[in-house]
Write a protein that binds this DNA or RNA. Structure first.
Lengths: 197, 197
DNA sequence: CAGGTTCTCTACCAAGTGGTAGACGGACGC
DNA sequence: GCGTCCGTCTACCACTTGGTAGAGAACCTG
């Protein structure tokens, strides 16, 4: 019986609960119950709720940064192909664990100090992404536009669609394997068309 | 001193608080305090928190449906121009009152019964929108794709960008008048490129 | 074995949660 | 003047919140 360490199990459960229902809406008791431990054990590992939130954000940021940079490195020279690869890379974890991106959307509700810390963690990735978009626009391989806002818009499309199954159900989408593949392909087509020159 | 009726003031305040911070995270006491009244007066107008949430969703849905249908009716024959008009129409209220779309994003966390009620309210609009996209795709005036998923993707882009000022700030966007205009124009360009044939 | 460290636990606490019961006062038709 | 609504209020309820204090078990190291 390997049994993951308590601290990791707490983080796992917290990512899901915070991501799905919102940080403020989830109590320490609830997380502890999900882990199968008392609230006070949780407060042993993370001295306060805020500390737990900070730790959760750190792990999520790291995970996303790793996935995305790997996808960027591994892919083609053509920017549209490369962007495709990033979308595929993000789509997997996002669908497997919707709470991941759901957490990102919690940012607006969190302590600005925490937000700033997270921002500094992902800033290099964002800057690299913006610079890349800009250079490809210069070379005429992407549609000319404000690279910063285009980056934000593409991000909004991907996280929006991944975190709102309700919107998809409203247009009659079904969450099975075929549905997921269709969704991923439509998403790629949408972003590709939005960015193509 | 006209003084709006208490019930309306409660609804107003509830839209903002629920939209910004999440339904589960906002207490009745807090709403009552914001209105300047005791919690029990609030429970006089809405017999429970759930009833208040339902009323809030109704008013928001009505408001959005009115704005959107008006924009559709008033605009041109060219589908790209018409979609432009809808985006402009949604962008105004969304920026003036970010909580509006924020509330829409709360759907996944609410009682499924409430969600179903809201869905039935906006279903006609959604179906009309999908049918319209489909017919214009047939005529070759929009990019050929699954009209249902395209509708969801465009929705995700607009609400995503409107409800996540943090993402925009991360790419160095500033929330002044010029910034808003630039954002609106980039959003229109993005959606237009994504949908154009 | 002793003595410390690591971890989880029980027992509390003050403050806040959604909600009930019912008193108070003012406006109304009679 | 008199009852009767209407809207808001105080008082209270059982329960949950994030957090503190400290007991006790299981483990090392000597």
């Amino acid at each position: 019986m390997p049994e993951r360490p308590t601290r990791d199990r707490i983080l796992d459960e917290a990512v899901d609960l915070f991501g799905f229902r919102g940080v403020e809406a989830v109590s320490l008791d609830e997380i502890a119950r999900a882990v199968g431990v008392r609230k006070q054990s949780l407060l042993y590992w993370f001295p306060s709720k805020e500390a737990l939130v900070a730790a959760v954000l750190d792990t999520v940021a790291d995970e996303l940064v790793v996935v995305i940079t790997a996808a960027i490195r591994a892919s083609d020279d053509d920017p549209l192909v490369r962007i495709d690869a990033v979308i595929r890379a993000v789509f997997g974890p996002a669908v497997r664990r919707p709470a991941l991106l759901g957490l990102v959307r919690e940012l607006g509700r969190l302590d600005p100090e925490l937000v700033e810390r997270l921002r500094s963690r992902i800033a290099p990735l964002v800057e690299a992404c913006v610079a890349y978009l800009e250079s490809e626009m210069e070379r005429g391989r992407l549609r000319r536009a404000d690279p910063r806002l285009v980056a934000a818009l593409a991000y909004a499309t991907v996280t929006g669609i991944a975190t709102e199954p309700e919107a998809l159900e409203t247009v009659g989408w079904s969450r099975d394997l075929a549905g997921l593949r269709r969704l991923r392909d439509e998403l790629r087509g949408f972003i590709r068309a939005a960015l193509a020159p």
